[in-house]
């Protein structure tokens, strides 16, 4: 066993996953709920100014996070530094976090738009946010596992770097 800092690419894997997760959540929201189902509305008469600003910021962040997440993933693969459990943990945390923010702050507090119109939104809200919490829980569980496996596998990237 060589000595060294524990698993240098674990946190980078997590960050890469987080960005990709936010990107996936933003993409699903846009493609499925806005464009395919037409459940979400582009603009709702009750939208607040703060809602518009938050929407603009998260909309832009969703796309840029997707791009950054993909390039980070490519970089991790290139240096054999991808820790899959940490990456998937990041994906779940990013996805769940974005969806929970969207479901509570955007839909309810800032009233950007509702999940679906012409029906009672309550069951949709509960389902939406419960799924978000499940993703967050899965993310935390995976992160705890990543920390254990990461410690076991430590030193691995250096050996690979030396052999290449």
């Amino acid at each position: 066993m060589t000595e060294g800092p524990p698993q240098p690419h674990r946190s980078r894997s997590l960050v890469g996953g987080l960005l990709a997760g936010v990107g996936v959540a933003a993409f699903v929201d846009e493609a499925v709920f806005h464009q395919l189902l037409h459940w979400h509305h582009f603009y709702d008469r009750s939208t607040t100014d703060a809602g518009l600003v938050s929407d603009g910021f998260f909309h832009a962040f969703g796309w840029l996070a997707t791009v950054a997440g993909l390039f980070l993933y490519a970089d991790l693969r290139r240096r054999n530094g991808l820790l899959r459990t940490a990456w998937w943990s990041g994906v779940c945390l990013g996805l769940g976090g974005f969806q929970l923010y969207d479901g509570t702050i955007h839909h309810k507090v800032l009233r950007l738009h509702q999940i679906r119109y012409g029906v009672d939104p309550a069951p949709y809200d509960w389902t939406w946010n419960a799924i978000a919490v499940l993703f967050l829980a899965a993310g935390v569980a995976l992160w705890l596992r990543a920390r254990r496996t990461g410690d076991r596998a430590h030193g691995r990237p250096r050996v690979r770097t030396g052999a290449a």
């Binding site: 603009g56 909309h59 962040f61």
Partner: peptide
């Protein structure tokens, strides 16, 4: 800067809807 500018662009675009 790109992030903030993109957000400001999106906010302005959406506000033009109404």
């Amino acid at each position: 800067t790109l992030l903030v500018a993109a957000a400001a662009h999106a906010v302005l675009a959406k506000s033009l809807w109404a």
